[in-house]
Amino acid sequence: MPSPVSVLESRLGINQVLTNLAQGYKQPDFVMRLLFPLADVSTYGGQIIQFDEAAYEDVTDDRADGAPYPEVQSGYSGVPFKLAFKGLTYKVPDKRRNEMANMKINWGAMATNVLMSKAGLRHEIESAAIATTAANYATNNVVTLSSGTQLNESGVDPDPVIRTGITAVGNQIGVEPNVMLIGVSAFDALATKYARNFTSTNTTPGLRQQLTEDTLAQIFGFARCRKVKALKKVGATKSRVMDKDIVLAYTNPAALNSDRLPYRPMGNIDVNMLEPSYGYTYVYVNNPLMYDPGRNEENKYTYYQLDFDRKVVATGVQESDSKIISGYLIKNAVA
């Protein structure tokens, strides 16, 4: 069950039934929690717990009899963070409620699911903005492809491009990426290219095996590979939150199924400073949460409100400049 809400919060109007529904919400097509899984924080500000590169320092364990033991420590706090206040309102006008009364809609449940869908999309957008910005990566952890080198071109072999990224991460943190997130256009280009190489076995002549996320993961040795399908609309323009890029990342192994889990409590994991994890989403304890419905008598509507205070942070970074080293960005992988 989700973490209990305090008596004080209950008096402030927390609706535990709707909160349970919000925390149990699932959206398997939102995949950015693979890079930035949810992690509880009990304050609205602090220091980001980042991976300690001292883990790779060659510290001798030789000691003379009676001499002090060589000392090591793990983990360090990086740059400050401050949680962003995040909230949405769902409005149900009285006339709409009356018009749809025969449908017996549970408006509380409807509001909660709509609000969580919107908040989940915002998390996808926020996370993709960090993951696909070349300036966020260390020099050896990003490549921007251009005409003549992009993966959709007939003469370009994707294997060395992707394997270069795998090696680059391994050279920085000592372990290889376990997750690949790939934009839809980039995935389609690879599916077309690899389909030409698959052979037909025990099938009608002419049929070829289709490239799937799992197949792509197996080819390169990733634990998970997911297409980033989330769609956003700004004004009249629709676009994918990540379409032409590929991100390879080492993420906390406890988070490898986070896209399949509800947002809480199973979707929440502990920050492990011993893992060079790509990132986390710091979430204020007990969020997301829903309030009791309110009324606006002047304009004749009922409203439902969601709080989901959080901050998306990169943690697998260089100590010197906070540039990402636990991931590799292939920018503009296709035209």
Rank of each mutant, 00 (worst) to 15 (best):
N140A: 11
F222H: 14
A109I: 02
A186G: 11
Q16K: 13
G66K: 05
Y304S: 00
Y284C: 05
L115E: 00
V72D: 10
D214G: 15
D61Q: 12
F30Y: 13
Q73I: 08
I219H: 14
P80D: 05
T133G: 04
A217R: 13
L231T: 15
L274S: 14
T281P: 01
R260S: 14
A55H: 04
K238G: 12
V156W: 01
T281W: 01
A314E: 08
N136W: 05
Q16H: 10
A101G: 02
V179H: 00
G45I: 03
R96Q: 14
A54I: 03
Y280E: 00
V156I: 15
T212F: 05
T302H: 00
G66L: 05
T302Y: 00
D307N: 12
Q47N: 08
K311G: 02
N299L: 11
A191P: 02
T139L: 07
R33Y: 02
D245H: 13
D309H: 12
E319C: 02
T203H: 11
G294I: 00
Y282T: 09
S258M: 04
V179A: 01
S6P: 04
S127R: 02
E275H: 07
G66H: 10
D259Y: 13
T144S: 15
A135K: 06
V241P: 01
D58R: 09
N15E: 01
G46N: 01
K300D: 12
